[in-house]
């Protein structure tokens, strides 16, 4: 009996440590650092989406809004607060958190309404940030330049740490009593309240964790690419990618979104990104096929086989 928890502790620790270590090691063998960094950013996004969608059932189509908020939070911190870049990156995460706190009333909405309301929120945020009247603050539609703090090596290391944080968040949610409450809420919200769970608070915490991860991802991405336009960091396809990666691997699992991001983003780049619409087509078809034939993701195949084998 005492063996099992210890073995689980070890495997949990490995799941937190190995993915960032793997990316770090990969940087010595593979010289396209920006590709690896972007892949790590997507791992964080897929896991962040996993926290809210996989454990509460709330699907934010507008997840990219937090990513964009993180990118702009960092840029504004650099330009107006003149803080060191690492602090600015953290403030990017805080920006995602604040936007999520502001939008937390959306959690009162159910399924489809929440999904679409979050999409509207991301679009509203995009139009706000890119508004010519706010040029003095956000530089409006003309984008942001972070060349003064550019440091690709440091940004890469930050992304490695981000992957570790994302894995830690998901492992914690998966194993903790908090995660158990979330699963209970998902199974039956009224019963969860009858078990004494503060449903609104639990969902809000998951929402804030999820948004902070996306904020940090946006912050590091902004740091790494250094020059960007608002439409680049509020691009809906970032939401699409995060959703596809998470769904493909399997939401509600620890490893699924990680595998989804690595496999699908790897394939995406292996074939080449010269024709984005062809990937949009492939990913669109993939979403439809996953829903119709593999609603629990890639990992469910393995689980099913294991269960049968036992």
């Amino acid at each position: 009996m005492a063996q099992r928890p210890r073995r689980q502790l070890v495997s949990d620790a490995l799941m937190v440590v190995l993915p960032p270590a793997g990316f770090f090691a990969a940087s010595f063998f593979y010289n396209n650092q920006l590709l690896l960094l972007t892949m790590m950013v997507y791992v964080a996004l897929a896991q962040g989406l996993n926290v809210i969608f996989g454990f509460t059932g709330y699907l934010p189509f507008g997840y990219v809004g937090f990513f964009g908020a993180g990118a702009y939070g960092t840029a504004l911190s650099v330009h107006f607060l003149h803080v060191p870049i690492l602090v600015a990156v953290l403030l990017g995460g805080v920006a995602g958190l604040l936007v999520a706190a502001l939008l937390s009333p959306l959690l009162r909405l159910t399924g489809a309404y929440f999904a679409i309301a979050s999409l509207a929120a991301a679009e509203a945020l995009y139009y706000l940030v890119s508004n010519p009247q706010l040029t003095a603050v956000t530089n409006g539609p003309y984008g942001v330049n972070l060349a003064s703090v550019y440091n690709s090596g440091a940004a890469f290391d930050a992304a490695v740490i981000l992957v570790g944080i994302a894995m830690l968040c998901v492992v914690w949610v998966r194993r903790s009593h908090f995660g158990m409450s979330l699963r209970a809420i998902r199974a039956d919200p009224l019963s969860a309240r009858m078990a004494g769970v503060n449903v609104v608070r639990a969902r809000t915490i998951a929402w804030l964790i999820s948004a902070s991860l996306a904020g940090l991802a946006g912050a590091i991405y902004a740091w790494a690419i250094s020059v960007f336009y608002p439409e680049a960091v509020f691009d809906l396809s970032i939401s699409v990618f995060a959703i596809v990666f998470a769904l493909f691997g399997g939401v509600g699992t620890v490893l699924g979104p990680l595998l989804g991001a690595i496999v699908l983003y790897g394939v995406y780049n292996y074939i080449g990104v010269s024709q984005p619409q062809e990937f949009q087509l492939i990913y669109g078809v993939l979403i439809v096929l996953i829903v119709l034939f593999l609603p629990n993701g890639l990992l469910s195949i393995r689980l099913r086989r294991l269960r049968r084998g036992r």
Binding site: G57, L59, F61, G111, A112, A115, V240, I243, L247, Q277, E278, F279, Q280, L281, Y283, G284, V285, L286, I287, V288, I290, V291, L292, P295
Partner: peptide, 25 residues
């Protein structure tokens, strides 16, 4: 399916991506 509301939402999201991509092509 088990959760028609969410599953249909995700699926039509995929369909939307397909239609958009085909239109660009």
């Amino acid at each position: 399916s088990r959760d028609p509301e969410m599953m249909s939402l995700v699926m039509f999201f995929g369909v939307s991506q397909v239609v958009e991509a085909l239109a660009v092509i």
